[in-house]
């Protein structure tokens, strides 16, 4: 992203305090930009109201492509391109094709899903992490608000929210 954002964020030192703070923020209808945690916190998604991830759809679609590719390719070879009888089996021995079909289903599904994951998250080698605070990957839990277009009194409201919900530090940074 070319234009940087001005971010006001609070750091909490415990995940339970974080969850409570998020609930308070949602009650006050505050527009949370993002929440950063050092590990997947249990109950964070419902508290934030995040819709369930749909990455499994990608897994299914890629798996299907893998299965069709494998079965189709092997069938085309053995029926049409170069039919050979192996050990008296028919030209199209479906049972013999199952192991490779299975393997390619898994392979396509896994590789496809991982690529989709990195793409939609915008992650990859060479991506510079927009780190608000290095302790977020250690033991700090962070709620961030985008304050680029905010009035001073709105900012003060957020400040107050952080203080009331037990944030141990409040900082501002542009990323």
């Amino acid at each position: 992203m070319a234009n940087s954002k001005n971010v006001l964020f609070g750091l909490y030192n415990d995940d339970d305090i974080l969850i409570d703070a998020i609930k308070t923020a949602r009650n006050q209808k505050l527009d949370i930009m993002d929440v950063f945690t050092p590990f997947p916190v249990h109950g964070l998604d419902p508290a934030l109201g995040l819709a369930e991830s749909r990455i499994h759809i990608a897994g299914f679609v890629f798996g299907l492509i893998g299965a069709i590719t494998a079965m189709g390719f092997m069938s085309w070879i053995s029926v049409s391109d170069w039919p050979i009888i192996y050990g008296g089996k028919p030209y199209w021995p479906v049972l013999s094709f199952i192991p490779i079909t299975f393997e390619l289903t898994v392979l396509f599904s896994a590789v496809g899903m991982v690529i989709v994951f990195f793409t939609i998250c915008g992650l990859g080698p060479g991506v510079t992490a927009k780190v608000l605070d290095p302790r977020i990957t250690d033991d700090m839990f962070c709620i961030a608000f985008d304050v680029s277009n905010m009035e001073e009194n709105e900012k003060a409201g957020l400040q107050k929210f952080f203080e009331e919900t037990g944030a141990s530090e409040i900082n501002q940074k542009s990323i």
Partner: peptide, 14 residues
Amino acid sequence: FGWTGSAKHWQRWE
């Protein structure tokens, strides 16, 4: 890979 620990990323990661 530029990991930040964003809530949505964690959800997808899990």
